[in-house]
């Protein structure tokens, strides 16, 4: 079984993002970029499936600027087999990403597509669900456990009430939650091997996908600074204050 893992190049989780002075977006010039942490978990899960003998090939795909190659190389260094970069300098919204992935999934015919549940830059949490809908495949989102047996996959999901296990017919879509696994560090020999693993570059046009934005960003601003709280003398005052504020 082939596993397809989409990965996104995002601002590193350790970096404090700065908004551009003109309010058009987040300043990414010379900022450390890394693989979206949820996608790392997805890559790790695919590698574990391969180590168990369930998966035979892991294909990673990224959509974005040329530098996203580095992110793909990271995934290859962790243990993925080959990579596809769909190169574009434009902003790509979740629906366009899902359409691109649908085309690739149709070509590659994977048994599983494992995605991060969301990317830590825009936190959209949409791509996996949209992809499932476009392909007409089952989806198991927010996975904390993935078990493939025969033609089905059991996905344990982290939902508000606790855990829920769904059984999906393959091929299927899985999106990862934080507790699914702990991604490995790439080993030095694998980093060196990653350099010679195949990496194909395509464009959205090659895939026949129109990626024009449907949303317009009006303005990006920093969240307001937290203002200091107030001290109340006793419970009565607290209740009075709360009433005043109509809470």
């Amino acid at each position: 079984m082939k596993v397809l893992v989409p990965v996104k190049r995002v601002i590193d989780y350790n970096v404090k993002p700065r908004v551009k002075a003109d309010g058009t977006g987040v300043d990414l010039a010379n900022v450390k970029m890394s693989m979206n942490p949820f996608d790392e978990i997805a890559v790790e899960e695919a590698i574990r499936l391969k180590e168990k003998g369930v998966a035979t090939e892991i294909v990673v795909v990224s959509i974005g600027v040329a530098k996203a190659q580095e992110t793909l190389r990271t995934a290859l260094a962790m243990g993925a087999d080959r990579a596809i970069l769909v190169q574009t300098d434009d902003e790509v919204e979740p629906l366009a990403v899902a359409k691109i992935l649908k085309t690739i999934a149709t070509e590659e015919a994977p048994g599983l597509v494992i995605l991060g549940k969301q990317a830590i830059d825009d936190d959209a949490n949409q791509t996996g669900q949209m992809l499932a809908a476009l392909l007409g495949w089952g989806q198991g989102t927010f996975a904390s456990k993935v078990e493939v047996s025969g033609e089905t996959v059991a996905v344990t999901r982290e939902v508000d009430g606790g855990l829920e296990t769904v059984s999906l017919k393959l091929p299927a879509i899985v999106t990862t939650d934080l507790r699914l696994n702990e991604p490995r560090y790439a080993s030095l020999p694998n980093i060196m091997k990653a350099k010679s693993k195949p990496l194909a570059t395509k464009t959205p046009a090659d895939l026949g996908v129109e990626i024009a934005s449907r949303l317009k960003t009006l303005k990006v601003t920093e969240p307001p600074k937290r203002s200091a709280g107030i001290k109340v003398a006793d419970v009565d005052e607290l209740v009075a204050r709360l009433k005043e504020m109509a809470i």
């Binding site: 580095e70 190389r73 990271t74 260094a77 560090y185 790439a186 030095l188 980093i191 060196m192 990653a194 350099k195």
Partner: peptide, 22 residues
């Protein structure tokens, strides 16, 4: 010659991550 900057970058980045996190 096989140690091109993109490869050494990848090595340094992973080493940095290991050092910081482990």
């Amino acid at each position: 010659s096989e140690f091109t900057p993109d490869l050494t970058d990848a090595i340094l980045e992973e080493a940095a991550r290991f050092c910081r996190d482990v």
